[in-house]
Design a protein around this nucleic acid. Structure first.
Length: 110
DNA sequence: TATGTGACATCAA
DNA sequence: CTTGATGCCACAT
């Protein structure tokens, strides 16, 4: 296991592993990476990931299921459209079945 | 080398 | 209910 990857790369790796139609939170990703308190860094990583097509950043939301990063996408509701396209219901920029769709890397990915 | 920054999380008032 | 203040850490300049 090459651990030479940067924190960003690890974040991208986890985000890429998110199953289709599922979502996760910054905190969970940070927790999975061993830094439960570096959720901000995960967000920062996503900021850079916006140029990478391999990273489905639209599947990453904050702890309450709010599409915090929708403003960083091209369109106003692009992020919402992408999620809905995968079967995720959105209401007022909030994921409805957030608890159900939540994908915990620490448990699922291990 | 040092300073600033953020797509977060949590708690207090 | 809302707003603010704080911690936290990797990256950018």
């Amino acid at each position: 296991m090459s651990l030479d990857k940067s924190f960003f790369s690890k974040v991208y790796d986890v985000v890429r592993a998110i199953p289709h139609g599922r979502i996760t939170t910054y905190g969970l990703i940070a927790n999975y990476l061993g830094s439960s308190n570096s959720a901000r860094v995960v967000g920062y990583a996503m900021n850079s990931s916006h140029r990478l097509i391999d990273v489905p950043a639209h599947r990453v939301v904050n702890r309450i299921g709010l599409l915090s990063g929708k403003h960083h996408f091209a369109g106003t509701n692009l992020m919402k459209e992408l999620l809905e396209s995968e079967g995720v219901r959105i209401k007022n920029d909030i994921v409805m079945d957030f608890d159900k769709l939540l994908w915990n890397p620490s448990k699922e990915l291990k």
